[in-house]
């Protein structure tokens, strides 16, 4: 019994991983600069651009306030455009990334805002250019917070990826719905749930460990 279940479970887990990691990487690629801009474009800040902040802020909020499953369905045309299809693991990466970007942007913004303003001032007094303040001071100092936030994002994305499973994206959610629910296989359902719990636990532990390693404030 377990012998037949193990390969499909492994396959589904790998699919979940590939969706989540891709969305995390792509989401950070776009979310990081947006977060930096959100954190530094206010009045009197590093890249003063209050108008930009007034425009980008609400867009970020709007994206975040749409429930993920609705977002995933609503952007199907966009997903087709980008991925060529709206079904499958690759296609699922599109809505996951779209959901991850504003999430990560806010996390980066929050982590940067935690950095003591005195450090920015010290860097400027040393002759740092604004971009250097970001790369040499704000991001390194915010790193523990950013790692915590990205861990949170990864866990949230694992949950979301189970939802896109429901619209045919593969992964653990898909397995749970198709086998566990539709074909009434409680053993599969149980295996999926346990795997999800273990995966989330591992991700959280890894994130905590990395954040602790990066944090030199309490040695």
């Amino acid at each position: 019994m377990f012998a037949t279940l193990a390969p499909i479970l492994l396959q589904a887990t790998l699919e979940t991983f590939s969706m989540v990691i891709s969305a995390l990487v792509l989401g950070t690629t776009f979310g990081l600069p947006i977060g930096v801009v959100l954190a530094t474009s206010g009045r009197g800040e590093l890249f003063e651009a209050p108008l930009f902040q007034k425009i980008i802020g609400p867009i970020v909020n709007a994206t975040r306030s749409v429930p993920f499953i609705i977002l995933a369905v609503a952007i199907i045309p966009f997903t087709r455009l980008v991925a060529g299809t709206s079904i499958g693991t690759a296609a699922a990466i599109v809505p996951l990334t779209v959901a991850a970007i504003p999430f990560i942007a806010r996390i980066i913004e929050g982590a940067i805002r935690e950095v003591d303003g005195g450090l920015v001032e010290a860097a400027q007094a040393m002759g740092a250019r604004p971009f250097q303040v970001v790369t040499k001071v704000l991001l390194p100092e915010a790193l523990p917070g950013i790692i915590h936030g990205l861990t949170l994002t990864a866990v949230t994305l694992i949950g979301y990826s189970a939802m896109v499973g429901a619209v045919g994206a593969g992964g653990l959610g898909d397995l749970g719905i198709r086998y566990g629910y539709q074909r009434f296989r409680p053993d599969v359902m149980a295996a999926v749930v346990i795997t999800l719990i273990v995966v989330v636990q591992m991700v959280q532990s890894l994130g905590d460990w990395l954040a602790r390693k990066a944090d030199k404030r309490n040695i």
Binding site: D116, G118, L119, E121, A122, Q124, A125, M126, G127, V137, P140, E141, L143, A214, K216, R217
Partner: peptide, 16 residues
């Protein structure tokens, strides 16, 4: 500014 050094009350050292 690189021609001037500045020392602060609360040190302002980078913890990282």
């Amino acid at each position: 500014r690189r021609q001037l050094g500045m020392v602060f009350q609360h040190f302002n050292l980078l913890s990282s």
